[in-house]
Design a protein around this nucleic acid. Structure first.
Lengths: 144, 144
DNA sequence: TTCATTAGTGGGAAAAAGTGGGAAATCATA
DNA sequence: TATGATTTCCCACTTTTTCCCACTAATGAA
């Protein structure tokens, strides 16, 4: 269970250190994928295998499942964690998530999300503002 | 399981190096076929045999499955990987996929796709735009 | 306060991946 | 058989990646 928010910086070699508290849960090899709202998702290898197994059941005959597979799989990357606890962000993912120097790691239950700090702050401001309203909605459907 | 996106360049001799991370999974001989959406599919020999077996199960009675068989099979070629990890793209496939100098390799489950970089970027922009709809689908199959 | 420890960061050197091009070998054509 | 074109093999250059070490700021204990 990953929780918490950490801001780290991406260096010129596109390396970034994982927050210490996430390292054990993620292991020495992680899989990063394109996520929603322009962030990246980071999974441990075992968590990723569950996702991958489901995707393999989809056929390539339909255009939308082809697109779906390409979005998830070609947008993913298996990444090694180096001796200092850092990972290397692939170019296409850096671009997708609009990462600049300041990057936020956010723990969200079974995955870690990677955000550009500016985008994160904008997004966070919005959800903080709407938190009360969201809570009411969730209450109505019996989630809380 | 192939994942990730890599951009390499096709040289004047129509050679192109396979991304390092795909080489082991593909082996020393690969099968390339016409793919869907104007890209090429690259399979390892063993993965290709599974695809071929599935195609053989399709009936010859219907005109469209005959056509599909021809599309895949007649456009296929077995290609050797050279000492530097490069393959030679046959002329008709180069033309089919509209490959110019910049070429993208995309790992998609059991196959590697080969795209002209420009076409890929256009296609990718489209699927990224539809990410929300795709995400709902992901939710349905319980993958995320 | 001082010292030791550790997380995060930066940079240099070695290694490897990707790329280009020449020479030998092969094939086709006259 | 001779000639030219194409293919194959090999070597070399350049850029990128990897590995390792070192610095700094923060933390906590003595």
């Amino acid at each position: 269970m990953f929780i918490g928010e950490y801001e780290h910086s991406l260096d010129e070699k596109k390396r970034i250190s994982l927050p210490k508290s996430f390292r054990q849960g993620l292991g020495k090899k992680v899989v990063m994928t394109r996520g929603l709202d322009n962030c990246l998702f980071v999974y441990s290898r075992s968590a990723w295998e569950k996702v991958a197994a489901k995707l393999q059941q989809l056929s390539f005959a339909q255009a939308d499942t082809r697109g779906f597979n390409r979005f998830i799989l070609s947008g993913a990357a298996e990444v090694d964690v180096d001796g200092a606890g850092r990972i290397l962000i692939p170019d296409h993912q850096k671009e997708f998530a609009g990462l600049r120097k300041n990057v936020v790691f956010a723990g969200v239950s079974d995955r870690v999300e990677v955000w550009d700090a500016t985008r994160w702050n904008t997004y966070k401001a919005r959800i903080e503002k709407n938190a009360d309203a969201l809570a009411e909605k969730l209450g109505e459907i019996g989630a809380l």
